[in-house]
Design a protein around this nucleic acid. Structure first.
Length: 807
RNA sequence: GCCGGAGUGGUGAAACUGGCAGACACGCGGGACUCAAAAUCCCGUGGGGGCAACCUCGUGUGGGUUCAAAUCCCACCUCCGGCACCA
């Protein structure tokens, strides 16, 4: 017996060197016959290094890559780093070191840790979003969108975080507070911003969800975010003035019950409509609403407030004038920024009408019950108080009323979306400058492709200030530029683009990192995309994944790619938490993998994370059971290296062979469907069975090692070599199983009497009810429970169960 | 409030399409080996009762459907994630 034992450090480093030297996981993108693009969400390389949450995410994705590789696919598994953005910038400000000097060491640390984890990454295709060779193309994408009318500049009320000193996307505002500063209320500011017209694709973004193979939860989150609602836009003519107020409603059937209107305080018509006597009051309300903290304004439970503006509009159905109010519960950014208020059938309008003594006219009457007291009736029923439409069912009346108004030119059916355009301007330093030049003569120009990249100037003066102007405005060599068209003095845009733009196209760049002349090589993207499988966290369900889909639709429309949807399959992994809480630096509960890898090795740590619970559900990280995985790998090593070679050669007994084939079937199916915890349990069971055998057969060793390979890649290579096979096990093919050998010859059948388990009997597979019943009733324990009772009925599930009902 | 997901031994968890609840591990108890320990191996391990064979209760709570429910239905509780005056 050898005195050597399994030494993961030695084994793992040796195989990592072997893979690197032999370019085992470097993919020839141009000759691949069976491309499998295995994508994982690239990390933000924080200075603290990789944490277990990253390792959990990467490992689950890497298992898919390795599994497909053994199955014979040409797997492309690239990685990159996304070090632009506010997170890096704030950290740099805190440390007083320029981000361009901090990022390389963070990246180097991440790279070291990731290599040590043994991912099958193709490191020849690494991208960094902060590299001018990359962001040149991020800027190019902006110019393409600009050319196609998908990028525009608008003054808009934006979310301003006083702590970040920058604009936030809606998605970055959590309950009215900043995503990065949970104690800081977001303010609203009017600013010139660059937007991408994602709303153009709202319907396509929604419709395609019906066929893309994504985790259901992710698709639901996207559908909700897009927020489609069907209704109508209706014009309410102004009384004693030209023009009309347009509203959006999902309930045109309630039009006869519209007894007043409400505009958002910021609505542009307010200024024109407000009466002289009420102007002071209205202005005071508008100022207050504007200054109000977003959290307060959006608090659904708060008392309704508002003011009458001294003007009236005509209800187009009743022909009667109704008062126009402003109130902060109506939002400028949704629908038309104005509503028709139907207090009888909308709870918010009801509360408002109650507070201000406005008339409440019911027009929908529930069938077979009466209207609720003290609340709006929001359900369906028959129309009343509705002139010619009285008696019509409310659902049918919607279209009828719209059609009737349409003939008078004051309504049209309309689909509204909650989705808003993507604001990409950031008044910060650490990002790709938006490639735009403002020339007094030529107007707003995109920087021509030949002048890209617009390099981010090196400056130590990059702290944002309350001016709201980006730090780049203070760098005069950058700010002043000659117009690319006429040569006259012109100015550069000084905002940088949103970090989400960097990460919205990185998977296209991976294929073409060797090409300095194009963003991506069309032949390669045609071969490799859409991505075969994308694995990542569901926290990106509506941000990253939505923006990415939008860009790909735009690229496809421009003829830049051959596909519309970037990810064939997307699977969301669960969140790894610690003691019931999300891991974060502020909580001080971030777990660093290095210590575990140093103690037990990467294989053990990988498998342990995967064994913790269902991959798609995540779980609570504890290191309690890690020793169980280590023991399992130790046993696997001993079995292959020491125990098995000492046994005489021979064939497995049939029962063991059946267990082997059942194991192959189970591990294959569970790996395929990301049920890694049960796949590992099956591997353990299989090893337990195989170690009980007293012969060394020719089949089980190689099968087991290959099943183990996606999970413990280093050890699998080592054991493959110990079996006398030449590397790499990842070129060896996935073991097949014989379906006939996955069924045992005999089965154990549960015998119940009146639904309670009393006995089990072992019979030949496929035994008839008569046979099983005969065996069962002959058993003493069964007979005892049936004594002096009559057999009423028998339920028989072949090969499983028999239930004898007596009474 | 709304939309998802979840609630099972001391712990992480497993359970096909409604068909033997607790696979696989951790931990714990006992034993073997050892001068001793570590490592390893073997046995046991949901609760209660019983010397035992066995009996009985048991998947968040309360009802229901069914020969049979962790699984389906109704009502509720708790936790996690997301959204939130969306007209």
């Amino acid at each position: 017996m050898s005195d050597r034992t399994y030494d993961p450090q030695e084994v793992e480093v040796r195989w990592q060197e072997y893979w690197e030297k032999n370019r085992t996981f470097v993919t020839d993108l141009d000759s691949a016959k069976r491309p499998f693009y295995n994508l994982m969400m690239f990390p933000y390389p924080s200075a603290e290094g990789l944490h277990v949450g990253n390792v959990f995410a990467f490992t689950g994705a890497d298992i898919q890559g390795r599994y497909h590789r053994i199955k014979g696919f040409d797997v492309f598994e690239p990685i990159g780093f996304d070090a632009f953005g506010i997170h890096s910038e704030n950290y740099a400000l805190k440390m007083g070191i320029h981000p361009s000097r901090l990022v390389p060491s963070s990246v180097a640390n991440f790279r070291r840790q990731m290599k040590r984890m043994g991912l099958m990454t193709d490191w020849t295709r690494e991208v960094q979003t902060t590299d001018p060779a990359y962001y040149r193309w991020t800027q190019w994408i902006f110019t393409k969108l600009f050319e196609h009318g998908l990028a525009y500049r608008a003054k808009a009320p934006v979310n301003w975080c006083p702590a970040c000193q920058t604009v936030l996307a809606n998605e970055q505002v959590i309950a009215g507070n900043c995503e990065r500063h949970p104690d800081t209320a977001v303010e609203r500011r009017e600013m010139e911003q660059w937007f991408f017209r994602i709303t153009k694709y709202a319907s396509k973004l929604l419709e395609n969800l019906s066929w893309i193979d994504w985790s259901l939860t992710t698709k639901q989150a996207q559908a909700h975010w897009i927020g489609r609602s069907e209704g109508a836009e209706i014009d309410f003519a102004l009384e004693g003035a030209d023009g009309a107020v347009r509203v959006f409603t999902t309930r045109p059937d309630t039009l006869y019950g519209a007894t007043y209107m409400v505009l958002a305080p910021e609505h542009p018509l307010v200024d024109r409509l407000v009466s002289r006597e009420l102007r002071a009051e209205v202005d005071a309300y508008r100022t207050a609403a504007k200054a109000m903290r977003e959290v307060e304004r959006l608090d659904a439970g708060k008392q309704k407030t508002g003011v009458f503006i001294g003007a009236h509009a005509i209800n187009p159905a009743t022909g009667r004038p109704i008062p126009i109010w402003i109130a902060d519960y109506v939002l400028l950014g949704y629908g038309t920024g104005a509503i028709m208020a139907v207090p009888a059938h909308d709870q918010r309008d009801y509360e408002f009408a109650q507070a201000f003594g406005l008339p409440i006219v019911p027009v929908i009457f529930p069938i077979g019950e009466s209207l609720p007291e003290g609340a709006a009736f929001e359900g369906e029923g028959l129309l009343g108080n509705s002139g010619p439409f009285d008696g019509a069912p409310s659902q049918e009346a919607r279209a009828k009323i719209v059609a009737y108004l349409a003939t008078k030119g004051c309504a049209e059916a309309k689909v509204n979306y909650r989705l808003r355009d993507w604001c990409i301007s950031r008044q910060r330093y650490w990002g790709p400058p938006i490639p735009v030049i403002y020339c007094d003569r030529c107007g707003v120009l995109a920087v021509p492709e030949r002048d890209l990249p617009v390099l981010l100037p090196e400056t130590d003066d990059f702290r944002p200030d309350a001016s709201g102007v980006a730090p780049l405005a203070r760098v005069s060599e950058f700010y002043h530029v000659a117009c690319p068209k006429c040569g006259a003095p012109a100015r550069r845009e000084t905002d940088v683009s949103d970090n989400f733009l960097d990460s919205a196209w990185y998977f296209l760049r991976y294929t073409s990192t060797d090409r300095a002349d194009v963003a991506w090589d069309r032949a390669r993207t045609d071969r490799w995309l859409p991505v075969s499988l994308y694995i990542g966290g569901n926290e990106h369900a509506v941000l990253h994944l939505m923006y990415t889909r939008f860009l790909c639709m735009a690229f496809h429309e421009m003829g830049l790619t051959g596909f519309e949807e970037p990810f064939r399959r997307f699977r969301a992994h669960g969140l790894l938490i610690k003691e019931g809480a999300k891991m974060s630096k502020s909580r001080g509960n971030v777990v660093n993998p290095d210590a575990y890898v140093a103690e037990h090795g990467a294989d053990t740590f990988r498998m342990y994370l995967m064994f913790l619970g269902p991959y798609e559900e995540g779980g609570d990280f504890r290191d309690q059971g890690i020793i169980g995985i280590r023991r399992f790998l130790d046993r696997a090593w001993r079995w292959v290296v020491e125990e098995r070679p000492a046994l005489p050669k021979g064939d497995l007994p049939r029962s063991a062979r059946i267990r082997l084939h059942q194991g192959i079937a189970k591990v294959s199916a569970d790996t395929e469907s990301l049920q890694y915890n049960t796949a590992i349990a099956a591997l353990m069971e299989l090893l337990n069975v195989l170690r009980e055998q007293s012969v060394a057969d020719s089949e089980s060793g190689e099968a087991f090692v290959r099943l183990l390979a996606p999970y413990a890649p280093h050890l699998a290579e080592e054991l493959w070599a110990a079996l006398g096979r030449s590397p790499s096990v990842f070129d060896a093919g996935w073991p097949d199983f014989d379906p006939a050998l996955t069924l045992t010859d005999s089965v154990e059948i549960a015998v119940q009497v009146n639904g309670k388990l009393r006995e089990t009997v072992r019979v030949e597979r496929g035994s008839s009810q008569e046979t099983v019943q005969a065996v069962a009733v002959a058993r003493e324990r069964v007979a005892a429970h049936m004594a002096d009772k009559t057999l009423r009925k028998v339920f028989f599930v072949p090969d499983r169960l028999i239930n004898l009902v007596v009474g």
